[in-house]
Simulated assay, not measured.
Amino acid sequence: MGTGTDRGTDQGQRGPADRRPPLVEPVPDAPAAVADLGDETGLLLADYHAGIEVGLRYERGVELDSAAAERRERVLDLLARTDADRLVVLGDVSHRIGGVGDAEADELETLLSAVDVPVTLARGNHDAGVAEAFGDRIEVTPPGGARIGHVGVFHGHTRPAPEVLGADVVCMGHEHVAVRLEDAVGGARAEKAWLRGPLSRAAFEGEVDLADAGIEWREPELVAFPAFNDRSGGTWVNVDAQGFLAPFLPEALAAGEAYLLDGTRLGDYRVV
């Protein structure tokens, strides 16, 4: 296990050659971040998975009481704490892959009725039917995402759109980032984590044509978010056997570092 224990004062900082202020800053001890979206301050989170308890019942035979109210209150608390102007969900606001079922619809209806700021959803692989059911209340991007100010947002199950790669910071979900940590006596636990590092242009060569789209490459930082939902599992990014879900990882993040939710810097995610 890595020994890095630096606190979050340097989390999100860029290298010495790039002194632009960070546009995306994690909220301490929360799987969410505040982003400078230009004219707005955004609260960004990923993988909300409304209705997950019904899904777990049918998919795995696991019976759990709904945590919908707790999830909603966490979002409302974060919006109040950050004074955000917009809520941005980086995909999978819903859980059911085939469409919005009753459990998802009920939870999302209650959530949207309580949220008093505009909501943007970067469409994920679990979001079929969300635009049709809630399109008058949620702005839904194409699967490749969109750019809001200088921040690119997408889910991560597909390659990002050219405009996303033209941002200064690219934010994604999908991975449910977590790390496996071991103690001195061989015990282990999983912790939610952030991944941050320079996004490699080479990972998208031949896949995304920036020149053809008239997009300038700005050497963006990639920020991969932990899952907001506590019941959705995670990708242990420091365990080789599990692997990534996104089709461009790990190639697109050759020099990334992992951080815990409290800001603890773990260093190179591959050797944590």
Rank of each mutant, 00 (worst) to 15 (best):
A213T: 04
E191Y: 06
K192G: 12
L210S: 06
F204N: 01
P250Y: 04
E219K: 04
E219I: 00
R180F: 12
I215R: 01
A184G: 12
F204P: 02
L249G: 00
L249D: 02
V185E: 13
A224L: 14
R218Q: 11
V185S: 14
D212C: 03
A224E: 07
E221Y: 06
V208Y: 13
L245W: 08
A203N: 08
E251S: 10
V208K: 07
D230N: 10
S200M: 05
F244K: 05
P220W: 02
R189P: 01
A246G: 06
G197D: 11
T235G: 02
L181C: 08
V223D: 06
A227N: 08
P226M: 05
P247I: 08
A213I: 07
A211Y: 14
E221W: 14
P226K: 05
G206W: 13
E251C: 07
L222M: 08
A213P: 01
R201T: 13
F228M: 02
G243D: 07
W194L: 04
G234L: 13
V223W: 11
F204E: 04
W236L: 08
A224N: 08
L181R: 07
L245G: 12
A224F: 12
G197Y: 08
E251A: 09
E219H: 03
G187P: 09
A203C: 10
F204K: 00
G243Y: 03
A190Y: 14
W217G: 00
L199G: 06
F204L: 01
W194Q: 03
G186F: 12
T235R: 00
W194E: 05
G187R: 15
V223S: 05
A241L: 03
A190Q: 14
S232L: 11
A202E: 15
G243P: 10
T235N: 00
L210Q: 05
F228C: 02
L245E: 14
A227Y: 04
E191S: 09
E207P: 04
A211D: 15
L181V: 09
G186D: 14
E191Q: 13
E207Y: 09
A241G: 11
G234W: 10
E191D: 13
E205S: 03
Q242H: 06
A193I: 14
F248R: 00
A203T: 05
W194F: 05
E251M: 07
E251Y: 12
N238C: 04
A193T: 12
R201M: 10
A246V: 05
Q242F: 13
A190P: 08
W194T: 03
F204I: 02
A190D: 15
V237I: 01
G197V: 08
P250A: 05
F248D: 04
F204W: 02
V185Q: 11
A193F: 06
D240T: 15
V185K: 11
